[in-house]
Amino acid sequence: MNTLEIKNLNVSIDGQAILKDFSLTIPKGEVHALMGPNGTGKSTLAKVIAGHEDYTVESGEVLLDGVNILGGEPDDIAKAGLFLAFQYPLEIPGVSIANFIRAARQARLPEGEDINAVEYYKELYAKMDALKMDRKFTARSLNEGFSGGEKKRCEILQMSMLDPKYCIMDETDSGLDIDALRIVSEGVNLMRSEERGFLVITHYQRLLDYIVPDVVHVMFDGRIVHSGDAELAKELESKGYDWVKEEFVGAPA
């Protein structure tokens, strides 16, 4: 029950199959990395799990602690405990970081209950300090005019403030320089616990030097074709993805 379980997921967009019988189980307490070449369906997987409406789910299930979330509204899925750190976080002009996270926290409270503002800011500032974010950022409009690194740090801040059970991180390393990568990874590592599972989607092995995964999966053409330990990521780094393609395409169907 303490797992995020993706079972035989088939997803298409405009009639084109993207995920093909995709299955993966992430137990709490583990970090799984999902690697693979571009266009293989990694980001689609993340968005489908989070409830994006552009995709057509043909079949399958996504069980969050045993409860199917597939086909639910994005806000219900989020409140069930799933957080998606976006590859390209959206800009929301005029809405400050502090107010946005506060609204998201408020949405998780029962009706009639209000956030304690003093405690909220105390926690927010502590987490910003840990991510080396200037406290002045709380007043800035969410992601508006942020650098790539600032956006990603802001994603991790939200992730940490919303205390999800499962985190999916979609190409969080893209657009980060090495310092930002280290800070973001530290933030993630602080959140690692027996109570939380992670799916880290990345194209490059680099991120996994900082966030060391328990399991590495290689995805190709809509499904997982290889799984292994952290060493598999290093192997991919040295060999590239071509051997996966060759092996996969060459293998009998």
């Binding site: 994006h52 976080p89 998201a104 939200q158």
Partner: peptide, 17 residues
Amino acid sequence: FYMMQRGLSEGEAMSLA
């Protein structure tokens, strides 16, 4: 979608925007 992924309903997300 981004705002809803954080737990806001569609209406709350629009009002916030």
